[in-house]
Simulated scan of single mutants.
Amino acid sequence: MSEAEETAKVRRVWDRQAPEYDRQIQLLERIWFTGGREWLTSRARGRVLEVAIGTGRNLPHYAPGTDLTGVELSPAMLAVARRRALSLGCAAELHEGDAEQLDFGGGTFDTVVCALSLCAIPRPAAALAEMHRVLRPGGRLLLLDHVGSTWPPIYAAQWLLERFTIRSAGEHFTRRSLPLVRAAGFEIVEHERRKAGSIERLHARKPPAG
């Protein structure tokens, strides 16, 4: 499958899931991702880009007046995010776009946020390279995702689940963000793993110029 075909497949998957996504994820957010969105948004500063904004579930958690831009591959997910932004009175600029090919100049943003999405981006290293490019020197990268657990029985279950989810939806459960973030040239500022190591929160920094 070519890169373009793989990207189109991911777009179709999330277009199909968009109508039910919010309902399906509510329970997981209460018991598994608890506090993750608040953790991310409380650290966002300056001009913020949220990559793979989905249905906009982070929008209620940003500080009032945040200068926010969001990009999302799925038009159906983006439509839900736009309705949510309107209902909240949020002036975010929301665009259809690909995390692996961000349509912004280098050094445009002070903060890049990506929540529960690197797990399903086909080429996460390419996406992180783009996040690095669009951040100004010294800018912040804030990530939340589910990753391979540190507890072997849970890791084994995740590995088995992936045999289905990677083929059907491109979603990974044992993929780790930390080594990819380091390889992209970021410096780690904060790093937390929760829920038997299956949830990872990362705050990283693009090194200052010079």
Rank of each mutant, 00 (worst) to 15 (best):
G138E: 12
R167E: 12
K195A: 14
S74I: 07
A184Y: 13
H203C: 15
L94G: 02
G210W: 09
G106P: 00
D103I: 07
L128K: 08
G148K: 08
G56D: 11
L40P: 00
R182A: 04
A52Y: 01
R167W: 15
A157E: 03
M77W: 13
L160H: 09
P75S: 12
T55I: 02
D22W: 04
E29W: 05
I53G: 05
G54V: 02
D67R: 15
A63Q: 15
D22R: 08
C90E: 05
G65V: 04
S149L: 07
R57A: 08
W159C: 01
A8Y: 04
H146N: 10
G148E: 07
I154K: 04
G107L: 07
V51D: 00
W32K: 03
R163L: 14
K195Y: 13
P122K: 09
S198R: 03
T7S: 04
A120S: 15
E187K: 04
V181W: 12
G185W: 10
C114D: 03
L161T: 06
T174V: 15
L142C: 12
I53V: 13
E3G: 00
T55N: 03
H95P: 00
G46K: 15
A92N: 01
H146F: 11
V189S: 05
R175M: 07
R57K: 09
L160F: 14
R193D: 00
T34I: 08
L78M: 13
R12H: 11
Q24D: 15
G185E: 05
T41H: 02
D98M: 06
V112T: 08
T108V: 09
G107P: 00
